[in-house]
Design a protein around this nucleic acid. Structure first.
Lengths: 204, 204, 204, 204
DNA sequence: TCCTAACCGAGACGGTACGTCACGTCTTTTT
DNA sequence: AAAAAGACGTGACGTACCGTCTCGGTTAGGA
């Protein structure tokens, strides 16, 4: 399905391409995103620096591709039959990805880099925040259809809260996301999604 | 009562000290944390680089002090009479600090830098995450005393959720934290804190 | 015949190389060896500091090459038909090199630097003292063949005396080496070389 | 004879003064003139830097005083009864001073520093080159009075040749000045001083 | 005996240059 | 045409000393 066909200038060396991605993932995993400089990646991949710059405009773009290999972008929420179940399933999936692959470190590195790179920040929002909103919206919609919760009014906010909690754990919590955390977060999101209907008295 | 007695052979120049902090804050505010190099700070402050390295081991330590000047560390939750009110008050305080001073950019820069600096990460947890937990716990306790919510069981989790949402906004949301966001977040934390009692059916 | 074959992955930029040497010579000539810092040389040459450090381990090595350009290392003693003539010819050659090019200042700078750099001192001995001995020995041998002087017994000493006098002038005499000085030195070396035969009575 | 009298502001601490000179000599002896920075000297002497700068305008001035302590400035040529004897006596004196005290290293360091310090160069000429000329002139005059040599015409040149040979040894010869060297130099100066009368045929 | 200055140690200060690192671009040679 | 190799200009790093400048503390001399 991918364009492996007769593209004219695709003289791109598949070998070099893969070697770069592998080296990037490996170094990020072993030494951290920050230590994965273009120079070290090129050296470990046995590749010229120019080859990297030819195919990726910068380190972030390279690692976005690495991340895409590790975390399937078409991550879809399986239906476990309950809202909390769906949320926990999703969290467990992320948890294992972040603890068993370099994906966690890469993501936190990308977020870090985006703090001094507005363009990258936009890409991260488009690539990671927006899709998560969609997934969470799907999960909530499914729950509403089941009658578990009222129709979701603030699905995007719930999605962001999900991302916020996960990324907070990633950036400041040592990447653990243990069972307790997942449980608490799923519970919290459940009540937030449920409570949208009978609002508390306005505060001001 | 403080130990001014002994001697402390460090007659740190108040002028240089202040000039460095001011230059750091200014540059971070105008050009971003990442562009605030030790060299540019020293140059703008009219100070030798060594003077900076003499008093701060690295850029992060310097900006922790800058941040401390901008955001009073003894930030205490005022009692507005209701849980949601307290939360919104706190959020509004942070919101204005982050939008009107360089504090927001500095904080996100520090978090970014901590991704490749384990020691700094620990400091941030101690300096910013832990205190926020305490504040949130106070707020929740007060609400429980009022009878608004049941006794808080997972105050730390709620505190972290608060931090997570705020920092997510800071790191990925363009630092806005507008009224809607603050409202939604306060509502959400309210129901999470309330909902601890009547748990949803277990998912697995 | 030169080893251009193998590979030598150093495609040193001829332009940068020349620019550095030219800038070094120029600055040393205008401001003195001591003022020719790597930074100023790099700046004037329009070159990165790293480019200098890539090809020369330190300032001294760079200036040894600069000196080699100014003072042809294969400096050979022409035969003027007499010992004193040969010596004067050599002195005149050095005199003009040292007064018309930065070579004099560079040499004195190198000697100065060698006082705190044992390795450099060895290089200077090998590169400048030893060759001068050889040249002087050739001159003396030629004179002996002509019958001007007896066979030279202490040619190395005479060579060193030559170097000593020249360098003394260079280091402490304001680099003048005027005609009188050259005359006196040639005379002195002549009598030293001649007088080796009929020794004065031993002193003790 | 030293001015210990009632000088008005000579509140100078004798202890500090001596400690500085001793530390300077010690460090120069152990680590070389170049490693003897004002900072290390002050530290080893247990003295503030300012105390050094108060009494000596710069490092060179300090070491000129140190040198003056090691090498008695009123060094006078003893009469051994023969020209060569006088010269060898003088050489032996210098040789032992330079090999047994830090004086040799200090002198070479001063000469090195003078290459980038015109004022210092003048001082060295006045303090070390000129006096040597006088001493050598005395020796030559004495020899002429004895009838050993004709009246000295170029005494200054002979004196400079003496200095040149000694300093050449000091700066480039590893400070040895062994017996052979001293013998050869004394011989050479003898014949130069003698040969002034019957000049070689003019070379041009 | 006290007062007051100069001198002391300590070391902070604004600088300059050091030698190193990684950046992103470029050039050369090989495949 | 793309690759590997790596040299290039750039800019920031953190360090070492420079020579100047405060600090309090000590100490000597004149009152």
């Amino acid at each position: 399905m991918t364009s492996t066909a007769i593209s004219s200038h695709r003289r791109r060396s598949a070998h070099a391409h893969e070697a770069v991605l592998a080296a990037a993932a490996d170094i990020a995993g072993r030494c951290g995103y920050g230590s994965a400089t273009i120079e070290t990646i090129a050296a470990q991949a046995g590749v010229g620096k120019q080859t990297i710059y030819r195919w990726w405009p910068n380190k972030a773009a390279l690692f976005i591709e690495v991340y895409g290999r590790l975390v399937p972008p078409g991550l879809v929420a399986e239906d476990t039959g309950s809202l909390a179940g769906d949320l926990e399933r999703l969290l467990r999936r992320l948890s294992s990805l972040y603890s068993e692959t370099p994906a966690g470190g890469i993501l936190s590195g990308l977020v870090a880099e985006a703090q001094s790179n507005g363009e990258l920040l936009g890409q991260l929002r488009d690539a990671y925040v927006a899709p998560r909103r969609i997934i969470v919206r799907q999960i909530l919609q499914r729950a509403a259809n089941r009658g578990e919760i009222p129709p979701p009014e603030h699905a995007d906010f719930v999605g962001d809260l999900f991302s916020a909690a996960v990324w907070f754990q990633l950036l400041l919590g040592g990447r653990s996301m243990d069972a307790t955390f997942r449980q608490q977060l799923a519970d919290a999101l459940f009540v937030v999604a449920s409570g949208g209907g009978r609002r508390r008295p306005r505060s001001r």
